[in-house]
């Protein structure tokens, strides 16, 4: 069972990074979103430094939406989902494996770009490591929560916007606590502050509940 999950997750990574995949797009989007920040709010280093950590969370949330549309839609359209349903693995675990594979394939490159993006936004170098750790946990929570939107919108053609509309309100708690954790980190240097613990709790809760919800939603599309 665990072996099957590993195979599904690694297939997801291979498909995202293989020919015709779009593995680097969300990371490029993330970088682009950070790059235009000084144009929008002005190049004042103090202002950038003040909004920088929160802006990274915002850019991360938007970048995760880029890849969510195709998470289940491609498999639904080409019949792969039918074949996966016929495997002796519960659909909720298939969902979990796909979401985790997608997270590794897409969030990995985004997180690699984060240190550079943080420097561009004048985040103090001492806090970049802590901020990165918070964004790792936050990206997992965002990806899993977004998986619900991806599952619900899977059968809608050009459903990317719909997926984003479903996912964005669900992102609110993660963003509120994530940006709060980043603020505490920058002001006091405390990494495991209360907001960050709540982000971790959200990630763990999503890990347990999202597969069930998204699996049930996919069942409806397969019928």
């Amino acid at each position: 069972m665990i072996g099957a999950l590993g195979k599904i997750a690694s297939r997801e990574i291979a498909l995202t990074w293989g020919a015709g995949g779009s593995g680097f797009l969300p990371a490029a989007f993330f970088f682009g979103a950070v790059m235009i920040a000084p144009f929008a709010v002005g190049p004042d280093p103090r202002l950038l430094g003040a909004i920088g950590p929160g802006y990274l969370w915002l850019a991360l949330a938007l970048a995760t939406l880029v890849s969510l549309e195709r998470l289940f839609q491609a498999d639904l359209e080409d019949g792969t989902l039918d074949q996966l349903v016929l495997q002796p693995v519960p659909l909720s675990l298939v969902v979990l494996a796909k979401a985790l594979g997608q997270w590794l394939a897409v969030a990995g490159p985004i997180l690699l770009v984060v240190p550079v993006a943080a420097v561009m936004l004048k985040v103090a170098p001492a806090h970049i490591g802590g901020l990165l750790a918070q964004l790792v946990a936050g990206s997992l929570a965002l990806f899993l929560v977004g998986t619900i939107g991806a599952a619900l919108g899977a059968s809608v053609r050009r459903g990317g916007l719909l997926v984003a509309l479903i996912a964005l309100p669900l992102y609110a708690p993660v963003l509120i606590f994530g940006a709060g954790a980043a603020e505490v980190l920058v002001k006091t240097g405390e990494l495991f502050s209360q907001p960050f613990l709540l982000v971790l709790a959200l990630a763990l809760g999503a890990l347990a509940l999202v597969p069930l919800a998204a699996g049930a939603a996919l069942r409806l599309h397969v019928d």
């Binding site: 293989g18 020919a19 015709g20 080409d78 019949g79 792969t80 039918d82 016929l86």
Partner: peptide, 22 residues
């Protein structure tokens, strides 16, 4: 049921970018 059946539908579940053997 699913674990006892092999299903060939009109959708062949083939990804365009990955080699056949993989």
């Amino acid at each position: 049921l699913g674990q006892h059946v092999g299903f060939v539908s009109h959708l062949d579940a083939i990804k365009p970018g990955q080699p056949v053997a993989a």
